[in-house]
Structures are given as structure tokens and as C-alpha cells.
Amino acid sequence: MRHIIAVLLENESGALARVVGLFAQRGYNIDSLTVAATEDPTMSRLTLVTRGDDQVIEQITKQLHKLIEVVKLTDLSESAHIERELMMVKVKASGEQREEVKRNADIFRGQIIDVSPTTYTIQVVGTSEKLEAFIEALSGTQILETVRSGVSGISRGEKALSL
């Protein structure tokens, strides 16, 4: 099963390498990983999407906890949460194609953030599923490049991952 694990990490060099190394050493999967400093510059927040049965996920959270630099963590997928991912897609857009691409972007509430005579770059934000649906919708269009941020997530309501 897919899980989204959010981790508060000391913002120190080597801390991220320890997290990534743990996954490699113990043979766990990483579907996506994002990391950046929080409002408190001494801490980073990392969101990690992984897969595994309950036993594997339990080991992943326990092993992450053991890393000295991990301050706190939560499995967001255990309760109500919001997840978002940002994608930028550069597509070939000339002639009739230009209108078609723009229509698709509008349907997905995407924004065209860069224009050239032959290309559009579209930004789409949403769940990973939505981004995949958008790629699907562009099947008649030539995609030149895509870049995805990986998933970020946060709990709904008052629940918060903080010190």
C-alpha cells in the first residue's frame, strides 16, 4: 500500500543522506521525496512516498525514528490529509495544437507559465493522480519535457506535525 510519511529533520548536512541511505540499505522503496527548510530554519520537512505492507511500513517508521537527526514523523496516510504535487510540462504547441493544449490546461486548472512560438509550458498542481490524468489527456500532443516536484502533504484540521 502507498504511504505518505512526513518527517521533521534537523537541518544539518548529512541528515538527508542518512534518510535516503536507510531506504537503500534496507531495500525500501521511495516513490518520491521532497525536502526543504520549514519556518524554523533549524528544521527541514521531508515528505516521502513509499510502498509496502503494514510490517514494512512499521519498520520504515521505526528505523527512521532511530536516526538521531529525525525529530518527529507521522504517516499522513493514516488519517485525513491533503497531498499536492506540482508539475511543469513543456509541449510542442503550434497551429491548431495551440488551442487544444490550452483547452486541456484549462480543464485541469493548469496555467501556461511560459510561451514561445512553438511551445507552451504548463504548470499543474494537484494529487499525483490528477497529474497523471493530465499527461494522459495530452496523449495527442508531443511532450518535450516534464518535471514533477514530488508529493508534499499535510494533515487536515488541527493536527500538526511540529515541535
Binding site: 548529512g14 543522506a17 541511505g21 540499505q25 538521531i68
Partner: peptide
């Protein structure tokens, strides 16, 4: 050495 020892230490620091 931080990289080499990472999987076999409780912690390491520079």
C-alpha cells in the same frame, strides 16, 4: 568516512 561509515554507525559527525 562519513559516507563510508553511515550504514554501520549509530551516528557520525564532522
Amino acid at each position: 568516512m562519513l559516507g563510508i561509515s553511515r550504514p554501520i554507525v549509530k551516528h557520525n559527525m564532522s
